[in-house]
Design a protein around this nucleic acid. Structure first.
Lengths: 217, 217
DNA sequence: TAGATTGTTAATCGATTAACAATC
DNA sequence: TAGATTGTTAATCGATTAACAATC
């Protein structure tokens, strides 16, 4: 396996999309594909596909192209989808529920082992066979269970405090839906992936407002 | 107002974050800020801040910096947050409910005027005073109401068909949560903003898997 | 006025695309 | 073998950063 260090964020962000298209090709029983055919399908340059993949190793064969299933598995491995990641969800509101109920995550190896909320009304209730626990039970839970990823679907005001608690109890990665840049306030070795839905909607609004004069890039 | 055409996606994507920080500064009663102070706060270069803002006009003053509230309002205007956008939600599952219940969208001018689903069990039920309607009622609804944005929180398999229906009935922008690149299958003048949550989670997984050898950029 | 800080041009850096030799 | 297509180097393009004159 070649060195996978120093890969740019842009490349990494494209991998899941390659993975998705390859998965669909498998569903359609396609066995091999050239960078040119994939380029047509995904509307990116063949050059970019080859460059991106060669960051991680030579997965293709001259004169043949890429074996779809092999490449799919390799990208899955690069993305860490060949392992199981344990996950907890903090915040059992609608968004937390939406994520907890999203079955496909389980299929990709993200196993939800706990759901937490501050609301006493939710005490004892369950989501997908997982009992909702109170936040006060979280520290003890973290002492017993290894948690790879904590998903934060809580209001921004409590996000920092909760994130600190998680990090102090050994959580190494946070999937953050609160409107705060947790990466700036947590130790830099903690992995934070921010999902800012309102910012996505604002970009849509920008494009809608400035329609007709299509922006480049 | 200066020309706002030809702004790169990277710049646009940063505007909501400036907007958020400026909003917080207003909450903290900060009246003025220099690109250098904002740079410290947001961990981007002062140069980038000045370059980004100057794509849209000179909002600052030499020797003074930027007036926080003025800049906030200007960026809001650039993002189209000074108008009201009508929005419908297609798919009243957990994610659709999460978005429908997110009060802040309303505050920013995104007004939900309809929620649709295929599930007859949801018929007659309401979310935030908005009655859930059946998909069969959608075409008629679109003839009566101007819809700026359609939010798609439905499975990927029906997404394309529904998107076509929306576009054929005059919807110009789609906020897409289904795992399909609708921008590639719809007419190019239709504005599509994709939110692929599973791809975000995969990036997190990548970083977790390759931790210690931190990636650049 | 002097000091501060912008707006903007120029320099650098990195990412994307093109080209082609290597090779299946 | 001949044709196809990769892996990889080189060229281009665009985005970021640095520098500084303009000016409040």
């Amino acid at each position: 396996m070649l060195d996978e260090k120093g890969i740019s964020k842009a490349v990494i962000a494209r991998l899941p999309r390659y993975y998705r298209y390859l998965g669909e090709l498998i569903e359609h029983k396609v066995e091999r594909i050239s960078s040119n055919e994939l380029s047509d399908l995904m509307k990116v340059t063949a050059s970019q596909i080859r460059q991106d993949l060669n960051n991680f190793g030579g997965f293709g064969q001259q004169g043949y192209g890429y074996n779809v299933r092999y490449l799919y598995n390799e990208i899955g491995r690069i993305l860490g989808l060949d392992r199981t990641h344990t996950m907890i969800i903090i915040g059992a509101g609608h968004l937390g529920q939406a994520l907890a109920n999203y079955v496909k995550f389980e299929k990709r190896g993200f196993k939800i082992i706990g759901i937490f909320d501050v609301d006493p009304k939710l005490k004892g209730k369950s989501m997908r066979d997982i009992k909702i626990q109170m936040m006060s039970e979280l520290p003890q839970f973290l002492k017993i269970h290894r948690v790879d990823i904590a998903t934060l679907t809580i209001p921004k005001d409590s996000a920092r405090e909760v994130a600190d608690l998680l990090v102090n109890n050994g959580v190494k990665a946070i999937w953050n839906f609160a409107h705060i840049d947790l990466n700036l306030v947590l130790p830099k070795e903690v992995i934070v992936e921010n999902v800012h839905l309102s910012e996505s909607l604002m970009c849509l609004s920008y494009n809608l407002t400035h329609a007709e004069g299509m922006q480049k890039n």
